[in-house]
Design a binder for these strands. Sequence first.
DNA 1: GAGAATTTGTACGTATGTATG
DNA 2: ACATACATACGTACAAATTCT
Lengths: 85, 85
Amino acid sequence: MTIDRFDPTPIYLQIAAIIIKRIWQGDLETRDPIPSESQMVTEYGIGRETARHVVAHLREQGWVFTIARRGTYVAPRDQWPTGER
Amino acid sequence: MTIDRFDPTPIYLQIAAIIIKRIWQGDLETRDPIPSESQMVTEYGIGRETARHVVAHLREQGWVFTIARRGTYVAPRDQWPTGER
DNA sequence: GAGAATTTGTACGTATGTATG
DNA sequence: ACATACATACGTACAAATTCT
């Protein structure tokens, strides 16, 4: 899975979709840490604001929760969005 | 009302508090536009992301709603947070 | 316990795109 | 055509808390 810079879909949504897929497929389970902002920056070649946008989006959707200065983790199943499966 | 850079309170929260006070005092009413990002940038001498952060915060709290590429406006009273009055 | 590395938080700068008035 | 305004995105920097060595 990688991002497509010619796809008009915003990069932050493309990466969010990748992570959601990993969660949904069980590759990332509840309380597992998702990739850190720095990891996203280096792995996808994006800026940090974009990485933060990914996390903010996933958090708003209920996929993850963040503990300040520790990390961001997969939320319990019952907090996941209902419409996207 | 102005911001205090020696106050450890984040600038975006200081400005949000100013705007909330203006809403609560009736200076800004439902459907009135709040100051634009650019206005905040110039009036408070802050950066763009900080201004965006102010707006995002107010939106998350239910004080305002944003119409893409038009502006951000004071939300109806019944959407305001309940704890802060 | 000390110090380094990691990670998120905050903040400013800059640029381009796109829609509206 | 132009100004306004939000959306997206990269770059940079430092702070603060946590985790690792």
